[in-house]
Amino acid sequence: MTSLNLEENFQSKIDTEIKIEPKDWMPDAYRKTLIRQISQHAHSEIVGMLPEGNWITRAPSLRRKLILLAKVQDEGGHGLYLYSAAETLGADRDELVQQLLTGKAKYSSIFNYPTLNWADIGAIGWLVDGAAIMNQVMLTRTSYGPYARAMVRICKEESFHQRQGYEIMMAMAGGSPEQKAMAQDALNRWWWPSLMMFGPRDSESAHSDQASKWKIKRKSNDELRQQFVDVTVPQAERIGLSVPDPDLKWNEARGHNDFGEIDWDEFWSVVKGNGPCNRQRLQARIKAYEDGAWVREAAMAHAEKKEQRKIEPEAAVKAA
């Protein structure tokens, strides 16, 4: 087949909703886009462990501590799962991790915000995981098979995360005045960054057109953002918290909520590394990697020695 035919064949599979599998021919740009997107997603899971891990030792009850440990552990699992999905495209996990540590690869900016009170753990589950789910549910139908299948499993766990987050918010919003204040404070700080998670406006998004033609992405940033606002606003109202947006208003004609303008200067500033915790997050990952080097080297050396010991007695037997 000529490269033109290959490309047509590839696009026709996509158009007829046949999943692309690892051994199928695919355009280089498709492969690159997916590796970039999947590895960014994996990095986000791993870096995302940090702001929540920040509260494991201070969780206010044994039940909450268990749930939080399990949730952060799930995220580690998602990270591994996604790195594996990226490896089906010929990427190498160590190289991807290096890209994260050198700052070459991005991860979700949301994790560059700090967790300052316990309600932040609720807000992350409710808003951050809630926003992630919007995106991930869409990705269960993405055109690349291994990525779509990884998303099916991840979505199940994420919806549990979202529920436990909302449950924390509900408990606190219905608790003492101090608890309610913590819940409102957390919503105030996480609301806008959560809306930013969907990325730039459609008119400004660099990757959207090609990604939708390849059905990597099946809804636009703005569509997903609107969907998130419409789902989340009534949830806030139900527990008596107010969304920090004076322009938020139900628009009967559109059948959607209108909402205020995102501070795009803040968005780009955090992307460029100037969020409140960009440095700390990356430094924490680098420290874990560097401090752990001797452990990984020792594990490798031991595995090699073990292999060697298996071969040597065999060789000795043969020689005899």
Binding site: I56, V72, L80, A288, V295, R296
Partner: peptide, 18 residues
Amino acid sequence: GEWCGHAPEMELDIALTN
């Protein structure tokens, strides 16, 4: 639990949390 997110390898992070 203090190791969570800081272990030498992702698999170890998961094991220690477990």
